[in-house]
Amino acid sequence: MAVTLTEAAAKHVRKSLDKRGKGVGLRLAVKTSGCSGLSYALEFADGPGDEDISFESQGLTLLIDSKSLPFLDGTELDFVKEGLNEGFKFNNPNSKAECGCGESFAV
């Protein structure tokens, strides 16, 4: 079981954490909402919770709660630029269908 960051994503996360000035890493989660049933959440993490499983990737800590992990296992978090727009993208092998906007998905 693993969740990883691409180099571009790691660079951006590190920059964001620096700017924010606090936080131990990044939290990835899956929530039950959105048009295809599940949606991703991406947050700064100030510390691990009881149910969290922690991963290291590119020298950064990723925290994922145990309920979300089955849906995220094998995911690679990437940071991409599309024209002027830039942001994070989940490359999730578990995802079978995405809604048009890509904000939610189904497994």
Binding site: L26, C35, E43, F88, K89, E98, E103
Partner: peptide, 17 residues
Amino acid sequence: MALLQIAEPGQSAVPHQ
């Protein structure tokens, strides 16, 4: 495809919101 941004803890937006 919408690209995500990092949110403050507990403040992830609901999709489309």
